[in-house]
């Protein structure tokens, strides 16, 4: 299967998925914090959470596609050098998949606790599969936020580890284009 696509295509798609997921993740996170601070009378009180759920589900799909891509086509290149970063980063990568699935799954468990499905940008509805009522939305809500914070901390570490490599890539990009 790996032979069908050229190396360039494989890494371009993997990179695109990485950066789109990261952008949608950060937007969803900011929207999550913003919407829970909105007052009842605010014009976005109802629409913001609907949008949050949709972009959150989008994160789920993006990460799912990237994990499939990684499995069949290309794994992130290891960090050059041999210090702690080289051993920690691959663990972080794998951890992020679990965390993203955990966050989106817990988010999904909040509104579906009463048996209602969640809409994805009004295109289709994800049905409610687990509806254990009263404690579900509370436990899921607490986990949802805790996992978000954990992910945020690890993402900062991940950035710290990769910033130099990333920056030099950017520089070479600019050099090529100018």
């Amino acid at each position: 299967m790996g032979q069908i696509l050229g190396e360039n295509v494989k890494s371009f798609v993997a990179n695109a998925l990485h950066w789109i997921s990261a952008a949608v993740f950060v937007s969803t996170l900011s929207l999550g914090l913003y919407m829970t601070s909105l007052e009842f009378m605010h014009p976005w009180y109802n629409s913001a959470p609907d949008f949050h759920k949709s972009t959150g589900i989008a994160v789920f799909f993006l990460v799912a596609i990237r994990s499939v891509w990684r499995f069949f086509f290309i794994e992130p290149a290891p960090i050059p050098g041999g210090d702690w970063k080289r051993s920690v980063d691959p663990i972080l990568h794998r951890g992020f998949y679990f965390l993203f699935f955990g966050i989106t799954f817990c988010g999904y468990l909040i509104p579906t606790a009463d048996g209602r499905g969640v809409e994805f940008f009004g295109l289709f509805e994800v049905p409610a599969l687990f509806s254990y009522k009263e404690p579900q939305e509370e436990i899921a809500g607490t986990l949802h936020l805790s996992l978000v914070f954990l992910t945020l901390c690890l993402a900062l570490l991940h950035t710290r580890i990769n910033i130099r490599r990333c920056a030099s890539k950017f520089k070479s990009l600019f050099k090529l284009s100018s």
Binding site: A113, D114, E138
Partner: peptide, 16 residues
């Protein structure tokens, strides 16, 4: 009080 039920999980979470 945690047993409040208005038939909408997100609203009940807010009420709690």
């Amino acid at each position: 009080t945690a047993s409040v039920d208005t038939n909408l999980a997100e609203r009940d979470k807010h009420l709690r």
